[in-house]
Design a protein around this nucleic acid. Structure first.
Lengths: 359, 359
DNA sequence: CATTTTTGTTGGATCGATTCAAATGTCCGC
DNA sequence: GCGGACATTTGAATCGATCCAACAAAAATG
């Protein structure tokens, strides 16, 4: 019965309480937001009325409009929402973002720009003070979309030359060189590269033209780093197969098939992400190849899972969590300036790499 | 120069556009929200003016107040925000929630009630249409806090007798019996139980009084299930050590120390969560005990990680992702009714359990 | 007792949009 | 030339709060 009535009634507003308690709405507001400036007697009376009428407290919707600040940051990607909980890289990043938000009491809103439909709670309608953008793929679209909102935002992975957008990323060239040198010094001379995309939705072997016209400079830089370093060891980089994948299972496996179908199989694989590297280890083991006995492999990213697989993955570690922390802080302490930060990377040698087999 | 001016100027409102374009705000609003009812010529003019003035489009803050619906659900816990990305149980749950939200285009707002401070973007101020509550610990506080908001919410784990709150959980008694029977049938007769808390912030051996006055009925039900089933096999359940932990590393290890410090060590451990079970496996291995040779162990939850550890964990699996999916849908399709759903559980036998050693 | 200070309360303005009943205009047929 | 049907546009009301200048009453001061 009560529930039936409740269902019908429209929610109680602060103004209703004020009227019922015989005070102005100004005073009623103060009772909730600055109780100390209201006379105790009045305060208690208003509170009592509110309690009795079942008032839920000032509605954040109204408060928001006045205050202007949501006190939450949006984290956006072009992937489905589950990406944030599945992908180890995303998770490490989110750990850093969470930490910064916890510290300041800010909330986190997860936004997926995967769904193009009208109804979607997407970048245009998210109630946030700013965005952290996961620019793994389709990064430019994400940036363009976000720019429209005219809110502060920071791109993760500085995959754009565009110096007008704030970004945090790593030194991709240096990281790639580290990986390449490590393998070269172990004596490897026959390589294959599992590459991230150079532009939207491409997979397959990358020709020099594709590389030259790369949209994603992060990918281009890593490739450049690999090639530069290998050249110094006298490797003919034009002979190295570079297979572009979508950083997931299917296309990575297809890439491995293609690479090992060619004449001379590589003794070392450079993977541009740990995810691909882990898939590769799996694929190689299933094929009866020993890692690192037959094939050595170096990943890129330094996700926690890399330490747990068998064999543990040698990789180029980014300070993922620290990047997340900084990105969040950039939004939370936003001062209007454009900031571009480049973080260092580190070679972590584990057991997925070993000396090249003689002969 | 331009940026200096821009910095000073307050953001452009729809009303500014309307004035500049020489139309009413009503029409200006329609240009953005229902463009088809505006004459093409006017529409284009207004759009042009908006573009030229650098209007970011209708501000969601204003729109929200009018519309009433945020189109986002809040997911709350008493843990820090990083819990959502670290904990395997939470992640599996979030996968289901994500899926339901993706399907309807709703957003997800992560809310932590860990921080008691005023400034926190917490349950009281979250801009959401409803809440999904992770009632792992301190569940009652979370429910009480949320009730105040007078928004729809659903509790995960039906750890309350309170029939007035919507909840989704599993049949804890049945699950616990399954676990106990499995071990008993393998011939085990000496048990120890790693228990979740019976009330806030307790750890240590649980006395019958503690159990009797349990606040968390989920824990109580699991224990009841273990005891019921073991009694049927003639085990004296009063002799079984029940150690209460906080479902994390430190207290779980302390529990194991305490259990194995006692006279006769158990040959089988019943853990009320996979997390504890995994920690236990680790602890046992480090102590030189073989799992399942020396000690068998059954977990509870069925988190994905359980399949990957060594040895793979025998456990009582909940349909975690499905629970998440349903919980989210309960909020998204909320109709005012209170719903309480009990999902089935399943015994998954892997390699962490084996026959009891003779003698 | 008059004057200043302190303390508490008031009510209008504001935040930025959407909605809808009413007004306006246009076109058509008779 | 008039009435009706239809397409557009208008502008006031509304959503639910906070802020602040002005005011009133009580307390402190000379």
């Amino acid at each position: 019965m009560a529930s039936l009535l409740e269902g019908q009634a429209r929610p109680i507003r602060l103004a209703d309480i004020a009227k019922a308690a015989g005070v102005s709405h100004g005073t009623a507001s103060n009772v909730f937001s600055r109780p100390e400036i209201v006379r105790a007697e009045v305060r208690e009376r208003v509170k009592a009325v509110a309690e009795q009428m079942g008032y839920a407290g000032p509605d954040p919707k109204g408060r928001l409009l006045r205050a202007g600040k949501v006190n939450a940051i949006g984290v956006a990607t072009t992937e489905p929402l589950s990406y944030f909980f599945d992908d180890p890289f995303a998770r490490a990043m989110m750990a850093g973002i969470s930490e910064a938000c916890d510290a300041t009491g800010a909330g986190i809103a997860l936004v997926s720009a995967a769904n193009q439909e009208k109804l979607a709670w997407n970048i245009q309608s998210a109630l946030v003070d700013g965005f952290v953008l996961f620019c793994i793929e389709g990064g430019s679209r994400l940036v363009d979309l976000t720019r429209e909102r005219k809110l502060p935002f920071v791109a993760l992975e500085l995959g754009f030359q565009d110096e007008t957008v704030s970004a945090i990323g790593v030194d991709n060239v240096a990281g790639a060189r580290l990986a390449a040198r490590h393998l070269a010094e172990l004596g490897h001379r026959r390589f294959a590269i599992l590459s991230l995309g150079f532009a939207d939705n491409r997979t397959g072997f990358a020709t020099p033209e594709v590389v030259r016209s790369a949209v994603y400079t992060g990918t281009r830089d890593r490739l450049a780093g690999y090639f530069e370093e290998l050249s110094r060891f006298g490797v003919d980089t034009t002979k190295i197969p570079v297979y572009e994948t979508e950083n997931e299972e299917r296309s990575t496996r297809a890439g491995l098939e293609a690479i090992f179908a060619k004449g001379e199989p590589p003794t070392a694989i450079l993977a541009m992400s740990d995810r691909m590297a882990l898939i590769a280890i799996d694929w190689l083991k299933a094929r009866g190849l020993d890692v690192p006995g037959d094939v050595s492999i170096v990943g890129f990213d330094g996700v926690p899972d890399g330490a747990l697989c068998i064999p543990p993955l040698t990789t180029i570690a980014q300070p993922i969590t620290e990047i997340g922390r900084r990105a969040a802080r950039m939004i939370l302490d936003h001062d209007g300036a454009v900031r571009r930060e480049t973080m260092g990377v580190e070679l972590i040698v584990r057991a997925s790499t070993g000396p090249a087999r003689k002969g």
